[in-house]
């Protein structure tokens, strides 16, 4: 029996007393990390709020330059990816190794779709001269601080985009490990905490979308 137990607990690192302790530690650690992420983006949201309070008319004008349709599609795509990510965790809990991989792959595809749409949005802006900061040359918005709105837009969506890319990287790594059969109902901590991360990336977008695209 001792033999069986030690095999089952092969993933438990030596300094933990039990699998439970390791799992709950990892989860708490991830929640704290997500909290720091919220504070990180929080700084940008504060900058956004302050500049919007100072220049409300600029934000109304500038938001019309952003494509609500593309932004809306991206919102749906990301929410969908959150769902498939949650399903991957569910698959792990029910020991369904094949579905872990499948759901993760769908999540990766959706995340990539998000980035592709984002790419088209960015290039369309670049073409008319809406570039971040000092390179801004667009003349369609009659406001001296027009470039500041787009600076904030690029900073926020860019930082969010980097998080999406990191998420894709993490999920590719999960797929590789899951293919090798690393995750089961006994141990699926990495899937769970990557899922938490992915939901946060999703939630940040859910805030970004109305704040940037839907100003009226």
């Amino acid at each position: 029996m001792a033999q069986a137990q030690s095999l089952e607990n092969a993933h438990v690192q030596h300094h933990f007393r039990s699998s439970d302790q390791q799992f709950s530690s990892s989860k708490l650690g991830m929640w704290l990390f997500l909290f720091t992420e919220v504070m990180f983006f929080g700084g940008l949201f504060v900058a956004y709020i302050i500049y919007r309070a100072w220049n409300p008319e600029l934000f109304t004008m500038a938001a019309t330059e952003l494509s609500t349709v593309l932004g809306g599609i991206n919102t749906v795509v990301l929410i969908g990816s959150s769902l498939t990510c949650a399903l991957a965790i569910r698959a792990a809990q029910t020991n369904n190794q094949k579905m872990i991989v499948n759901y993760l792959l769908v999540t990766i595809v959706l995340a990539t779709v998000f980035l592709v749409i984002k790419y088209f949005e960015y290039t369309a802006k670049f073409e008319v001269g809406i570039l971040p900061g000092g390179m801004y040359t667009f003349e369609g918005i009659d406001h001296p601080k027009a470039s500041v709105f787009f600076s904030i837009y690029y900073m926020m969506t860019g930082l969010h985009g980097i998080h999406v890319i990191i998420g894709i990287g993490l999920m590719i790594w999960l797929v590789v490990k899951a293919r090798a059969g690393a995750y089961s109902s006994a141990y699926y901590t990495p899937v769970e905490i990557t899922g938490l991360y992915w939901h946060l990336v999703d939630i940040i977008w859910i805030f970004l979308f109305p704040l940037m695209y839907l100003i009226d």
């Binding site: 929080g42 700084g43 940008l44 500049y51 900061g133 390179m135 600076s151 904030i152 900073m155 930082l159």
Partner: peptide
């Protein structure tokens, strides 16, 4: 602090104007 310094770096490289 991290986001502040990131913005400062962007301010110097891109001139984001915040």
């Amino acid at each position: 602090l991290a986001i502040t310094l990131a913005l400062l770096i962007m301010e110097r490289t891109l001139g984001i104007g915040i």
